[in-house]
Design a protein around this nucleic acid. Sequence first.
DNA 1: GTGGTCTAGACCACG
DNA 2: GTGGTCTAGACCACC
Lengths: 129, 129, 129, 129
Amino acid sequence: MNINPTSGRPLYEQLMFGIKQDILLGILQPGDKLPSVREMAQQQLVNPNTVAKAYKALEGQGVIDTVLGRGTFVAEDSSDFGPDRQQMNQFKRQLNDLLTEGMYIGLSRQEIADLMNEWYGGTHEANRK
Amino acid sequence: MNINPTSGRPLYEQLMFGIKQDILLGILQPGDKLPSVREMAQQQLVNPNTVAKAYKALEGQGVIDTVLGRGTFVAEDSSDFGPDRQQMNQFKRQLNDLLTEGMYIGLSRQEIADLMNEWYGGTHEANRK
Amino acid sequence: MNINPTSGRPLYEQLMFGIKQDILLGILQPGDKLPSVREMAQQQLVNPNTVAKAYKALEGQGVIDTVLGRGTFVAEDSSDFGPDRQQMNQFKRQLNDLLTEGMYIGLSRQEIADLMNEWYGGTHEANRK
Amino acid sequence: MNINPTSGRPLYEQLMFGIKQDILLGILQPGDKLPSVREMAQQQLVNPNTVAKAYKALEGQGVIDTVLGRGTFVAEDSSDFGPDRQQMNQFKRQLNDLLTEGMYIGLSRQEIADLMNEWYGGTHEANRK
DNA sequence: GTGGTCTAGACCACG
DNA sequence: GTGGTCTAGACCACC
């Protein structure tokens, strides 16, 4: 998981994102314990408040469970968060914007497809369906 | 072009994308005059400053040219040059983010490829020269 | 003389500039007749008012003389407009800005010097002192 | 850095150049935090929006990075990459304009070269690594 | 606390 | 008429 403070995306969102990704990739399994708020804050060089906010939001989504005094754990049924309509629409809008941008800087359809394949091939071979 | 003030996306960014798309779709041709800042502001129900901000940013990207006292025009050779390194890097970062996002909301590689083909097929197949 | 409407510099200033340059280069000699306001406007694709404004300003500087009903002529003593202190200061400030910019985009001192020599060599060999 | 509100040059542009120069002079080092928008506005007696405009433009040029909620920082590798084509073209245009201007106010090739050497010698010889 | 966005309204130079 | 700049002041999300 990589946190990029200059990307403009909220840090807490990037954290949520990274954790969900780790679950989808199987790096984190249901029942696994997450780093404590303070540990995670040190690892990722962010403010503990930011981690706490991410954990709280994930708990609200049912992705993780917090047990007072023991820690935070990946929920048992955490991996079935499929795309809802709102997320899909947002994604399509973003893809739309990105392809417009790509076309503008002179990238062909093939070049963009290549970049896409590169990403899947390089980092996520094991996860393709 | 439709500006949606409640979408959460900055208005000036929506304007920029709308104009870029109009150019790619051929609705706006190189050399065409854009609505004046004040006209566009009235059409889209935003403040003239917001339009000016979008126009300025587009000029910075080489998409449009502004002639003092005359107006703003679609640039002639906006996509002639290949992508430069900075643009490429930025694009790859954005693509990376988007694909991660797609994976996170549960979209498969094929589904994303389909969305991409849909975009190219639907809006731009007919427009290629 | 080339007028660039998108440079951000006022058109009338570019005109003044170009005329003075032609005089310095010897293309225009003292006593030569300048194109009429309308002719010049057609040649340079600008509004006649813009040409008139440039001519008037040049006359105010003693660079050209207007004879009513006959036309506009290069003044006899027009070529001795040396740098005054204000012009020098402005020039130094602009050079300062430009060199800062050049250093920023990664140009070495030598590369900038080369560009400079290229400019002098290419266009103005005859005029060097 | 001194902002001169009566010079005719846009304030935000003066800010941009002042910051770039501070970086080149080593007064600001990569990673250093810039004064906050509000602080800088007070220091330079300008409106915060004007500072924000300058910061935003510098970020667009890759000179500084902004971290939401934390502040603005000098970018780490701002001049690593060579100049890209667009930047080069813009620089050449500006150099061209400036040299024409110099010739027009009566500066010889040697005088301009001297001014250039003066700039490099005076401000940046000691600072090279 | 930080920067980001938007509005409103003013003044200016240019054409 | 055009865009460019600046100010003032508001509201927001993020940290």
